[in-house]
């Protein structure tokens, strides 16, 4: 699937389910194990939630542009927003021994994806690029089972 699938949702949390549904269907077409689909959907959902919360600061009317591509077992998600630039220095997943509400979203993303890159060179907003090698993730999940 060299042609990326693109979806733009408003920065309103009620549309998160829509983006989850689209990604779920897309990954199902590629016969990816259900457990891996769930993890990838979680990562995209957490990234979009962060854009709504921090990038746009709760403004519900701004665009979140999501693009999915799968090429040679490489799953790539790009999430573009035009809000406050992401301060990469401040993104610190919290220590798991510290049982308290909050701070888990970034941990999930870093734990599940192979690479996570925040591009802030544009005048406005952030482009987040997350990648996952599906073949190695699939072999790993088969080994674990």
């Amino acid at each position: 699937m060299k042609q990326p699938i693109q979806l733009t949702i408003p920065s309103d949390s009620k549309y998160l389910k829509l983006s989850r549904t689209v990604l779920n269907h897309l990954l199902s077409f590629h016969e990816i194990p259900e457990s891996l689909i769930r993890k990838l959907v979680l990562c995209v959902d957490e990234a979009c939630s962060n854009v709504i919360k921090y990038g746009y600061g709760g403004n519900c009317e701004s665009p979140i542009e999501i693009s999915y591509s799968i090429d040679e077992d490489q799953f790539v998600v790009k999430i573009r927003d035009y809000g406050k630039k992401c301060d990469v220095q401040k993104i610190k997943p919290r220590h798991l021994d510290d049982v308290r509400p909050g701070g888990l979203g970034t941990y999930f993303i870093n734990e599940i994806m192979d690479s996570v890159e925040y591009c802030t060179e544009s005048e406005k907003g952030t482009l987040l690029i997350m990648t996952k090698n599906l073949r190695s993730a699939f072999s790993q999940s088969c080994t674990n089972e």
């Binding site: 979680l42 959902d45 957490e46 049982v99 308290r100 509400p101 888990l104 941990y107």
Partner: peptide
């Protein structure tokens, strides 16, 4: 069927 970090955080708060 689905829970994200905010859902987990809510249940952690309940636990506290």
């Amino acid at each position: 069927p689905y829970i994200d970090s905010s859902g987990i955080a809510t249940l952690v708060e309940g636990l506290q």
